[in-house]
Computed example of a mutant assay.
Amino acid sequence: MDGSRRQFLAAAGAGLASLAGCTAPEGDPSVAGLDAPDDQPFAELYEAASPSVVRLRVYDSRGVLAEGSGWLYDDGVLVTNAHVVAGGETVRAQFANGDWVTAELLGSDPYSDLAALAVEPPMDATPLPLLDEQPRVGTRVAAAGAPLGLEGSLTTGVVSGVNRTISSVRNFTISGAIQTDAAVNPGNSGGPLLTLEGTVAGVITQAGGENIGFAVSSALTERVIPELVETGSYQHSYLGVRILPVTPLLADANGLDDARGVYLAAVPAGSPADGVLQGGTETVSVGGSPQPTGGDVIVALDGTTIDTTGQLGTYLALETSPGDTVGVTVIRDGEEQTVEVTLGTRPDPR
C-alpha cells in the first residue's frame, strides 16, 4: 500500500464530511447537487480498495464450477461466500493487477455463508478493515467485485436496512444482514460492501430483488472468519426451538398486550430447550384464522429485549457461544418469568 492510499483510508471520512458542508464559491462551474471534478469519493474509494478485491474462479473435474468475488481480510487470507467455493476442487483468484494465483480453502461455514482462503497477494494488496459498528440506514456504500465475471467493478448506493433476517443460497437463516440498493448481480457474491472510509460493512451474499441486495454483517464476519482460519469450521449457538413472529392475531389468541416477542411453536425432544421452554399445544380461531396457543413467548435474553425473530437470531449469533447459559424471559400463561437454558451447538447441516 503506498502512502497516498494509507492517507485516504485513514482520513477520507473527515475529508468527505467537510466537503459535504461546503458551498461552491461564486463562479464555480459545478452544478448544484453534482460532484465537482475534485470531489469524487467513489473514485477515490475504488483506487484505494480495488487492489485488495479479487475475482474468483472455482473449478471441479469438469471445468469452471462457479465464479465470485472476494477480498483480503488479513495478510494472506481472503474472504468470500461459502456457496461460491462449495464443491470446488481448485480456486484461483485474480487481483487488480491481472495476476491469477491459486487459493487454498482454509474453512467454510454454510450457516453464515462465509469462507476463508489462503493466498499469496501482490505487494499492493493490503487487508481491508471491518466496520466496527452497525452502519446507519442511509450510509453511502459501494459493492466491489466481479459481477457476471466483469472484474474490477464497482456499484454504488446506500444502506437500505439493517438487522435483516435472510435465507442463504442454501436455505439457512442468516441474522443481522445488511440490505443495500447498490446493484448486486451473480459474481458479486463474496465481495465487500464498502463504506466511503474504505471499511467493510458486510460481505455480499445475494440479491433479493430489484434494487435489493444483502450482505453478511461485519460483526458476524469478525466472529466467524478467525475460527475458520484457525480450525476450519465455526460452531453456532443453538437454542433448539421452532419459532413464529408474534402477529396481532397471534397476540389476541394468546392474550398478549402487545404484538411483540417470539412465539415458540414447538420445542423438539432432546433440544437444549427441551424441558425448560414450552411449545404450543392448541390452535384457536381468531377472525377466521387459525392461531397457535399455549407456547412460551420469548421477550428477552439475558435482559436484552427481544421483539422480533430477527433480534433473537442476531443476539444468539453475535452475543453467545455454544455452552453458554442464558436467561430466557418468557410470557407463559399470562405471566412473565425467566428460566435458564444452556445453549447447544447448531447441528451439522449435512
Rank of each mutant, 00 (worst) to 15 (best):
Q206D: 13
F214M: 12
S217F: 10
E230F: 05
P226H: 08
S217W: 06
I212W: 12
R223T: 00
I212R: 11
S217D: 10
F214P: 14
L220I: 14
E210Y: 09
E222N: 15
G209P: 03
S217L: 10
V216I: 10
V216E: 12
G213E: 04
L220G: 04
I225V: 10
S233M: 07
G208F: 02
Y238F: 07
L228F: 03
L220N: 03
S218Q: 11
R223M: 02
Y238W: 03
S218W: 09
S217M: 07
E210C: 08
T221R: 14
G209Q: 02
S217H: 07
Y234A: 04
Q235G: 10
A219R: 02
E210W: 09
V216C: 09
S217C: 09
E230S: 12
V216F: 14
L228K: 00
I225S: 00
E210H: 10
S218K: 09
S233Q: 13
Q206S: 14
E222F: 08
Y238D: 00
S218H: 02
V224M: 06
Q235A: 13
T221A: 13
Y234R: 07
Y234M: 01
I212E: 11
H236E: 13
V229S: 04
V229E: 03
T231P: 05
H236M: 04
S218N: 12
L228T: 12
V229P: 00
Q206Y: 10
G208A: 08
G208W: 02
N211E: 15
E222A: 15
Q235T: 06
V224D: 00
P226Q: 00
